[in-house]
Design a protein around this nucleic acid. Structure first.
Length: 759
DNA sequence: ATTTGCGTGC
């Protein structure tokens, strides 16, 4: 018995020696730590608090927070030392919420905080802007009697000032007996960052007068604070002053100054700083490199950005991320994607930010499919999406109406507690609206704990897109009631809602109210809504009169709206005027030629139809191929007009044929004026096969149980004949069918469409 | 084992 005890203690001693060795060796020892950890468990020493605490601190040093956490909670009775180690490690690595979680656990274990763990906990409060818990910890410090510890006091001042409680911070500071350089720095930087820049300057001088010399961090904090408030040139001036007074600015000084220079696109100042960097030999600092890349990217200097990147000493994730963003910002998404792939293949450890920015670049540049693929790849690579990734991926789901993928992202957000993030919520509203699930959009809206202007606009835009003007108006009025000020986008939503359902009076009232009550000048898109409002009610002459009053040069949207209403109401004369303008504004858009030719065709003006067709031929324009897609069981099926490659095409045509016969039986006559007179020969084939939206509906009918709602998306405006046919199908098959075209949603139900046959 | 400064994503 005694012998085993002796052996045990011998083993214990040797472990202790190993751990001490590991502590002194900072390089490459992670593997050895894990190895030793394994041995300790295997030999049954996992309850030796000393050994375990040492392990914990080793893991913390390597920023292996999850390992450290596991170790801590494997001890039956962790002491304050181990908690302290873990909490400080969480705080310094910015895992603030975890730091506070462990702090609470520590209290639950019956351990009171001391003067050492308190600063770490306060740092976390400052990082999370958690004033309430910060005050509680302050209270604990008072009760436990270490409120006057200089570390605790500095941390308290920092916490209060970062949470915006400048007065409280100042009161504490004034009561402090000895003020060292750290607490002066905290106050100076804090004042500057909170926008009290002049007071910060005064404090800085007071500090020197009181005999405390500023250090590098003091200077840098002041510079960063100025920069944070958009005072780019002032912070560059501080950089100079610092240099003149014999403080050599370091990488941090420089990278504090650059972000705002980029944001203000002050290229000249940026170049000055860059040359200073080269002169001072600061170009090896990875933060400086990243900040320079970011600055050049924001100033539109892609080549200079690439040059800085190429001269970089060693690969760094941050710099690579900045480069990818810079490339996409300058319209070079394909280059960004290629670089991203290269980084990945080179084995660079891409992080959440890398993936998220690449995904964001794709969604912002119409590469929705690529974005979704990247999102999948990212998870395969073991990188967990965060609350920023979700609102970046959702627009891609919305654009291509990939409802299942959107829903999956929704579930993911709920599981990971991102759902209450205002950006996530707003993106979900938008996604559900664009996927035709207005009810779900509303549920998301109602469940949001906090909403911002974008959230209100998103739900209103959803209602507008579906032609639900009553609901859009309700939201708008609610918004006014609770004091949320609308902006120009809110008015675009409400006006388009009114115009979609022909609420002429309401529309005009909102249009007037916009400038009178809110001081918002009508933009071109607001005029477009009003033109549409008039056009829809058949008042095309009035619409033309309104166009003349627009204080800007009318754009293609205005003329395009007019032209399409000329088609709906068969107005050849005004149609020709609108078309003429459009041919000048966008000569390469085939849609306008097609519309004009359809106007002619409806009146049987074949000579004019041919003339337009000849112009198109001469210009080498072809009608944009129409395609539609439908999501069935998590898979998106794309159907091209005239394309017979879909494996179920024969069945689709058979089904549509049968429906066609039923239609004829019930007295339907195809409206040849709407269908046939497409401009090109090949469109005859389209006619034979049916338009893509019809094919998508057919595919949906074949592959879903009776009664299921179908959701179809089309890349062009829905065609008139399809509109008639789908109305019939909705009645005959007792199905709700939603078709989203480039303009809005059409809800087909019981043989009626929500657009009221005007679109 | 504790306190101050920098960059990339909506």
């Amino acid at each position: 018995m005694a012998a085993t005890k002796q052996a045990q203690s011998l083993i214990n001693d040797s472990y202790r020696t190993i751990l001490i060795q590991l502590k002194s060796n900072t390089f490459n020892s992670l593997f050895r730590i894990q190895q030793t950890h394994g041995h300790i468990i295997k030999t049954g020493h996992s309850n030796d608090t000393h050994l375990i605490t040492n392990l914990l601190s080793l893991y913390s040093k390597h920023l292996r927070i999850s390992d450290a956490t596991q170790v801590l909670y494997s001890i039956t009775d962790p002491d304050i030392l181990s908690f302290s180690t873990l909490i400080s490690s969480c705080s310094t690595s910015k895992h603030f919420d975890e730091a506070l979680l462990h702090f609470r656990q520590m209290l639950k274990h019956g351990i009171l905080p001391d003067n050492v763990v308190t600063p770490s906990a306060l740092k976390a409060c400052a990082g999370l802007l958690g004033l309430k818990i910060g005050r509680q910890i302050h209270g604990l410090a008072k009760v436990c009697g270490f409120e006057s510890d200089s570390f605790v006091q500095s941390s308290l001042v920092d916490m209060y000032v970062k949470c915006g409680e400048v007065k409280d911070a100042r009161m504490l500071f004034d009561r402090m007996g000895h003020r060292n350089v750290v607490c002066w720095s905290i106050l100076v930087a804090g004042y500057a960052r909170q926008g009290y820049v002049d007071e910060a300057k005064v404090l800085f001088n007071e500090m020197r007068d009181s005999g405390v010399e500023p250090n590098l961090i003091t200077w840098n904090g002041l510079i960063a604070g100025f920069n944070y408030n958009g005072l780019a040139s002032e912070s560059v001036a501080l950089l100079h002053k610092m240099h003149l007074e014999g403080f050599k600015p370091d990488g941090t000084s420089v990278s504090s100054v650059l972000p705002m220079i980029g944001q203000l696109e002050e290229l000249k100042v940026g170049i000055q700083v860059h040359s200073y960097v080269i002169k001072q030999g600061l170009g090896l600092d990875k933060w400086v490199v990243t900040a320079l890349i970011d600055m050049y990217g924001k100033c539109g200097c892609a080549s200079e950005m690439l040059k800085v990147f190429k001269e970089m000493a060693q690969m760094d994730v941050g710099s690579c991320n900045a480069l990818v963003c810079g490339l996409s910002r300058n319209g070079r998404v394909d280059d960004a994607l290629e670089m991203f792939r290269q980084f990945k293949n080179q084995g660079l450890q891409l992080d959440v930010v890398s993936w998220t920015s690449m995904i964001a670049s794709c969604t912002q540049n119409g590469k929705d499919v690529e974005a979704l693929e990247l999102f999948r790849e990212m998870q395969v690579a073991g990188v967990k999406p965060n609350s920023v990734t979700i609102p970046c991926i959702l627009p891609a789901c919305a654009n291509i109406a990939a409802l299942m993928r959107g829903k999956a992202a929704h579930c993911f957000s709920v599981r990971r507690n991102f759902f209450y993030d205002v950006y996530v919520g707003t993106a979900l509203i938008d996604m559900y609206g664009k996927c035709g699930k207005l009810g779900d959009a509303r549920i998301c809206f109602d469940r949001m704990p906090t909403r911002n202007l974008a959230s209100w606009n998103a739900i209103m835009g959803g209602y507008a897109m579906h032609g639900k003007s009553k609901e859009a108006i309700e939201i708008f009025e609610l918004m006014k009631k609770i004091g949320q000020k609308p902006n120009f986008i809110s008015f675009t939503c409400i006006l388009s809602a009114c115009s979609q359902s022909g609420l002429a009076e309401e529309g005009w009232n909102y249009f007037k109210s916009m400038s009178v009550d809110y001081g918002i000048d009508a933009r071109i898109e607001h005029y477009t809504c009003m033109i549409t409002l008039l056009g829809r009610s058949g008042r095309i002459e009035d619409a033309f009169t309104l166009v003349k009053t627009i204080p800007y040069e009318p754009d293609a949207c205005i003329w395009g709206s007019l032209l399409s209403f000329c088609k709906v109401h068969g107005n050849v004369g005004l149609g020709e005027i609108a078309a003429k303008k459009l041919f000048k504004l966008e000569p390469d858009n085939p849609g306008n030629y097609v519309l004009l030719s359809n106007i002619y065709a409806a009146k049987g003006l074949w000579k004019e139809v041919n003339r337009v067709r000849d112009v198109m031929k001469r210009m080498g324009l072809r009608k944009n191929p129409g395609y539609s897609w439908i999501e069935l069981k998590d898979k998106v099926h794309t159907l091209l007009a005239g394309d017979r490659t879909h494996p179920q095409m024969l069945q689709i045509l058979e089904r549509l044929d049968k429906l066609n016969m039923e239609m004829v039986k019930s007295g339907y006559l195809p409206d040849t004026a709407l269908v046939l007179k497409d401009v090109e020969e090949q469109d005859k084939e389209h006619f034979l096969c049916g338009h893509s939206e019809k094919l998508a509906v057919g595919l949906g009918l074949l592959n879903t149980p009776p009664g299921t709602t179908l959701r179809v998306i089309k890349n062009l405006r829905i065609c008139g004949d399809c509109h008639v046919v789908i109305k019939f199908i909705s009645n005959f098959e007792r199905r709700e069918i939603l078709v989203r075209d480039t303009n809005r949603f059409h809800h087909f139900k019981n043989g009626v469409c929500s657009c009221g046959d005007l679109w």
